[in-house]
Amino acid sequence: MPATTVHLGFALLVAAAVLPMERFDRRLLAVFAAVVVFPDLDSIPGWWLPGAHRAMFHTLVLAGVVAALLYYDTRLRDRSWLRERWGSRAVTVAWGLLATHLLAHLFLDWSHLSGINLLYPLADQFYTLEGELVYSTADGWIQTFVEFGTGADGGIDVGQQGSTDDVHVPTPTDPNPGGGVDRNVERIVPIAVHGWQLYLLLLGLFTVGARRLQTEPPVERSE
């Protein structure tokens, strides 16, 4: 995975952008942190279920179920549990954090190493988004995200990586495939790798720092 810290950085930027009017107080930041960290906890079932990391909680299916529940509770029911319990602010925050989870966690992992198991458990297949989109005066438009006729069976290659049987994304809690807790093994906790990951981390911290320092706009003082 890009480290959870990188997700936190990019998620801070995205969350601040989708929730423009929210104050990033401690309570919101706590809920936010839980949403960002939660998917990476699927590395723990990886001890017993090989390949669980980046599959079990990194699936669009789970995000879809949460979105459906949220829609049902806030739009279809007569009385919304979320709105009654936490107020209408919570509804905005819930949708904003769901979007943040998709964009800053799932999608970012999708573009990294072995990708994510997009439709687990409906279809057990990891996908990676990697490629480029370039216009060249010599070759015209070039895009290598989706390649035709080069896949394993001559079909379309969108970065299929195999199933939970043969894809293992190493994590600090579970560095090697095979499950079980191995004591004598090097565990690497990445905080940032490559320049761009450090960049996203710093950019997120800057954004929320700036949000907290910004002065409140004057109520009526234009021109």
């Binding site: 573009s111 989109l133 216009y135």
Partner: peptide
Amino acid sequence: RFPLVERGWQAIVVIA
């Protein structure tokens, strides 16, 4: 070469 996106993560930033 006029690149729009050169890596996977850059595509995600644009999508976001």
